[in-house]
Design a protein around this nucleic acid. Structure first.
Lengths: 372, 372
DNA sequence: CTGTTAGCGCGTTCAG
DNA sequence: CTGAACGCGCTAACAG
């Protein structure tokens, strides 16, 4: 027979606490005792699982509220339950693409009761790997990955699927059996915008933002080449200038310097397609500096249709991809995998882009700020 | 006496697994058994805590590697250890401010061995609350909050400190005893840029992006008013136009419409200070549309010095705040609290902003793209 | 230096 | 409908 009444055991090292400073969070045991039931009953009442009399349920819930009780999700996970949290790996945060994508993802995710934790890779393989590892270590239920594809990155993803963690990539077609992916047709988008320039009569068209390195083939650049070839125009090597700052990305500075480089050629291009809108804005700036009339002497087009693209001088012709929609679809796919409602072979989805013609290429374009 | 040899117990419902599909992650028990030691010993070897003979340590580590063993951080946390993860709550992700801030934060955090999980509030109180709750539920070690201040938000933060979670806010001075905060001097920054406009001879100066609602007083607007008053210029109510889209923020559209509104006045301003650079870019666009010469007929200044500000036509005068540095300092403060190396009263830090004069206000400004 | 015991907070399982 | 026992994976505390 035990001589002492068994009360809640505190960590042995600090039997007394500084009173109000660090209130130990209430546990199910606390709630149960105060409600005069056994923990299991409290659990049932709170989770609505199993049966519990109306009277008991109310009493338990009342005590729980009053104690500010919150279930310990970590302990739950330890028992094999889901955390209802998914990890989202983004290339960076500065990009309007990331922002819009996250908006789409969260729209679906929160509605389904999941929490979204975001990490950024900042275009570093190391950071990408450690972020992925952190997500897995924290036992998130699934993973959405929107970083640019690399050899090592793909290997890390494969490793994750081996652990059985559901995974969907966005804008990154990947050859891993269990992985769904969703992307926009960048190749086609580039093809369309370059064809548009050709239709306007341009024969010499430059490309800004060609990245080097061992990454997978840049779809936007390839679309550009294809459009030129299909129109019977050759691909001139010196018309494609690279991005200096970061691989697989291009900044305003890249655009500025790229345009400066192209303008110095003996026969400079009369039109330029920039890999993204940031670079296009830099190119725009350079053209102004050089005193070139846009679009008469120099037509400029970008890609992505970021919000400022409507507000540049002149407004920017660009290609819009359905960003939020990709996010929404990706989230749906992931949830399907997590909840096993959508089993079977990996799904691959490719969405169409849309050419947005503004005054930076076409003087007759109607100038409006509405984003249709 | 037990008749059966006790082996690893699998969940009773699925005694067999689909072989290679969903490899159950190795646990410490698995490692220990394969290494021929008891779990506790394996733990010591892996964590370097306590003593372990060189020979045992090596054997255990080898097995751990070979089994792809990863400690279960959730189980650890359950035993009262830290997760080595902090939560970062950002207002949104589109803003270059967020991006730069996160860069600064992570710089310090990863060096100290912490993982950074990000959540966004998207300027919704509900999302803010649920994100905070999620972080706390997941037992992160500390919290960095950079959302705009609101009544309800502050209450949620107070609740969190009651739970004993270390908390540091950024750009959000807050009156909670245990909370450190760090901010830039927005008031002074606004005061300086408006004084600059006054020195250039402007007498009628507008403000774009005044937000309404119950939020705390907008420091940038107040700095604007103070500069006018100190120069003996009155504050004209109709010179301050609001932001339409979202409270506590302003977009290109707000800037565009604001400028249009101001230009229609009988005696329109000759200079405009926009609450942030996005709004300033919209105003710039409107001024172009109206055929106003910048800065001769209309001077325009912004706030934040976002990257595009150097590439607008003309380049934008603005105020730069030390964003990354705020992030770094905030992270240091938080780590100090988490690791209890920095106890004591709450610290409050206020950093200086810097006026960046470009051609949108001063025709004599030197045009350069270097971001000094 | 290594093994044993116990328990973190919760939910599954089986008995009342 | 409710209660008791057990274990998820890990480590503090205390033996050996």
């Amino acid at each position: 027979m035990k001589p002492v009444k068994r009360t809640r055991k505190y960590p042995s090292k600090k039997t007394t606490q500084p009173a109000e400073t660090k209130q130990r969070p209430a546990t199910l045991v606390d709630v149960a005792r105060l409600a005069g039931v056994v923990p299991m009953t409290a659990s049932r009442a709170i989770n609505g699982s199993g049966y519990a009399s109306e009277e008991v349920r109310e009493r338990v819930l009342k005590v729980a509220r009053q104690l500010h009780y919150r279930p310990n999700v970590l302990a739950r996970q330890l028992k094999g339950q889901r955390l209802n949290a998914v990890g989202i790996l983004l290339p960076d945060i500065a990009n309007p693409f990331s922002s819009e994508l996250l908006r789409g993802i969260k729209e679906v995710l929160v509605k389904a009761g999941y929490t979204a934790f975001v990490a950024t890779a900042d275009r570093s393989i190391d950071q990408e790997r450690s972020a992925l590892q952190a997500f897995v270590d924290h036992r998130i239920d699934g993973l959405l990955v929107a970083t640019r594809g690399t050899q090592l990155g793909d290997e890390a993803l494969r490793e994750i699927t081996r652990r059985g963690v559901p995974l969907v990539t966005i804008g990154r077609p990947v050859k891993i059996p269990a992985v769904d992916w969703i992307t926009a047709d960048h190749w086609r988008g580039a093809y369309d915008v370059v064809s548009h320039l050709i239709q306007l009569g341009h024969k010499r068209i430059g490309f800004i933002g060609l990245s080097e390195g061992p990454d997978r083939s840049p779809r936007r650049y390839e679309g550009y080449c294809a459009a030129l070839r299909d129109a019977g125009l050759g691909v001139v090597a010196e018309y494609a200038v690279g991005s200096v700052v970061a691989p697989a990305f291009a900044t305003e500075q890249d655009g500025y310097e790229g345009m400066m480089t192209l303008a110095k050629l003996k026969r400079p291009p009369t039109a330029v397609f920039a890999r993204n809108d940031f670079a296009a804005i830099g190119a725009l700036r350079a053209a102004h500096t050089l005193g070139l009339k846009i679009p008469q002497q120099m037509a400029i087009a970008g890609f992505d249709d970021i919000p400022v693209a409507t507000y540049t001088v002149p407004p920017l012709t660009t290609v819009r991809q359905p960003i939020a929609e990709q996010g929404r679809e990706a989230a749906k796919l992931l949830i399907g995998r997590i909840e096993k409602t959508q089993p079977g072979k990996a799904k691959h989805i490719c969405m169409d882009c849309r050419l947005i013609v503004r005054e930076s290429t076409d003087p007759k374009a109607v100038h409006t700020h509405e984003r249709v």
